[in-house]
Amino acid sequence: MDLSLTLKGQVCDLHLKNPVLTASGTFGYGLEFSTFGDLATLGGLVVKGLSLKPRQGNAVPRIVETTAGMLNAVGLQNDGVEVFCTEKLPRLPWRDTAIIANIYAASVEEFAALAARLDGEEGVAALEVNVSCPNVKAGGALFGQDAHLAAAVTSAVRAAAPHKHIMVKLSPNVTDIALIARSVEDAGADSISCINTLLGMAVNLSTRRPALANVVGGLSGPAIKPVALRCVWQVAQAVSVPVVGLGGILSAEDALEFLLVGASAVQVGTGNFLRPDCAFALAAELPAACERLGITDVTAFRGSLQWDTAC
C-alpha cells in the first residue's frame, strides 16, 4: 500500500513518503535513534527545537513521569542553528526522508533571522514554527496564545523562508485553537501541526516542593491523546491547509484515529521513550493496520469521521 502523500501548502508543498513523522524534542537530531531503525523509512523527522544561538536550558529536574504521561521543562537546550547546519544535518539522510527544522525564538525578528538562515539549506525540507514560547518584547506573552502575535511570527517566517514549507505548531493552551489556526493560515502557513504540550504541574508531598525546577512544564504522552484528537478535529474543520496531528500517539491505530478526525500526517513524540523503535514500528505497521480496518483509500479515509450532533 502506497502511503506517500503531499502536504499541499499555500506556497510550498511538502512530500512525505509516509504520514509518520517524529515530534520535536523527543527524537534528538534523529541520529540518536539511528541504531533502532532506518531513519529513511520514516515520513520525516522534526528535529529538536533550534534557536539562533546555543541555549543551555533550565535547571534540573527538567522532566518527571506522571500517570500515562510526562512533564518536561527542558527550556529548549540546543546547540544552535549553526551547529545543526554544519554538524548534524550533513549526517542525516535528508535525500531519503523529510528533515523538518523546528525553530524557536524570543522575538519576531529572531524568528525571521532563523528562517532566513535555514531557507538556503538544501537538506531542510520544511520549518516547523514553535509559537509556544514567550515573546520577550511583549512582556513574555506566548506568541501562540495571541492570534495577532502568532500571525506576525508566521508571516515573518513565511517572508524570510520563501523556499520552504512552513508548518506552524499550535499550543493547546488557548481558549479557541481554531481561531489561532485560521489566523496563521491567513498569515501564510503551509500547514499546521498540533498539539504542543499541555501546561501542567507536579508536586512532591514529602519535600513540599514542585517536581520540576521550573515549577510548571508541558504534559505529553498517552494522557493527552483525547485533547489532541479534539484539537486536530477542530483545526481541521477550521482551515484548508493540511493538519499534522500529534499527542500521545503510540500505535498505528492511534495514528489512524488522528487521520480519521482530519489529520494528513502524524508525529510520534513521547512514544519514542516507551520504546525507541516506536516511530519505526508504527510506520512499518501502518499498511497492515489499514488492511485490518478495511481502509483501502487513505485519502478518502482522511477526515471521514461521521457524527450526529453539531458542536
Binding site: 524534542g25 523527543t26 527524537f27 534528538g28 540518536e32 535513534f33 529538536k48 536550558g57 534540573v60 529536574p61 527538567r62 522532566i63 518527571v64 513521569e65 510526562m70 518536561n72 527542558v74 537546550q77 519514542n272 521513550f273 525507541p276
Partner: peptide
C-alpha cells in the same frame, strides 16, 4: 545517576 526518560541523549532530562 540522574532521572532519564530515553537513555539515548534525546530527552535532555538527565543533564
Amino acid at each position: 545517576e540522574n532521572r532519564m526518560a530515553c537513555g539515548v541523549g534525546a530527552c535532555l532530562g538527565c543533564v
